[in-house]
Computed example of a mutant assay.
Amino acid sequence: MTEFRYALQKIVDLKGNEKTQAEWQLSKAIFRLREEQDSLSRLESEKQKWLNGICAGQSSTVSDLQAVQDYISHLERQILHKHLDVNAANQRVVSSQTLVSDKMKDEKAWSNARERAMQKFTERMLKLEQEAIDELAAMRHGPVISGKG
């Protein structure tokens, strides 16, 4: 029996590689999102720490209170920018998920086409095998003569 060789196998392989690359991009986007979320969390904790310090009365002079308030304002600006970074990272995750989904569908379509071609090939080979077996059986037993007549 001859071996099945799919003429478009390189395309099937390419689609698989594209899907793998898209999955890597998604993984990187998720990692970056987590980094941004962690950074935001650290900034918010830092701000809360300084607010708690003010409430506890640790800063006694007006200049100390002003310096702490300036630093808290600075942290609030950083938090605002970090929220924008988190949103951008989240958008990259969403677009990467869409890309992976599209690549998976594309790869599946090409894999299905390959499977259909292999199924047709197998059916054709089985038919040829059966014809060869029938021909051998006919030659071995001679022509079939009908008993009617």
Rank of each mutant, 00 (worst) to 15 (best):
L84D: 10
S27I: 06
A7W: 01
R42E: 12
G16H: 00
R114Q: 15
N87L: 06
G149C: 02
I133Y: 10
V100Y: 09
R116M: 15
D134F: 03
D13M: 14
V86C: 14
Y6W: 02
I79C: 13
K120N: 13
V94N: 11
R114P: 13
I30C: 08
I11Y: 00
S111Q: 09
L99G: 07
N52K: 07
A89S: 14
E18S: 09
K47P: 05
L14A: 03
S146C: 01
S39Q: 03
S60H: 06
H141A: 09
V62F: 14
E135W: 09
L84H: 01
D85N: 08
K148V: 00
L8A: 04
L128G: 04
S41F: 15
P143L: 04
Q48D: 15
K82I: 06
A22I: 07
Q37K: 08
Q58R: 09
E115G: 11
R124V: 05
K47H: 12
K82Y: 09
L14H: 02
F31P: 01
D85I: 00
A29F: 06
C55W: 05
S73V: 03
C55N: 09
H74Y: 15
A67M: 12
V100S: 15
S45E: 14
D106I: 00
D13H: 10
N17A: 10
A132S: 10
A137C: 10
D102Y: 08
Q97T: 07
V12D: 13
E46M: 09
A109H: 11
Q66S: 02
R114C: 15
K82V: 05
K15Q: 11
K127R: 00
G57N: 05
E35F: 14
N52P: 00
F121Y: 04
Y71F: 07
Q97W: 04
R140H: 12
K15F: 03
T2N: 12
L33K: 07
M118V: 10
S63A: 11
D70Q: 10
I54W: 13
E129P: 00
F31I: 01
I11Q: 08
S60A: 04
Y71W: 02
I145S: 14
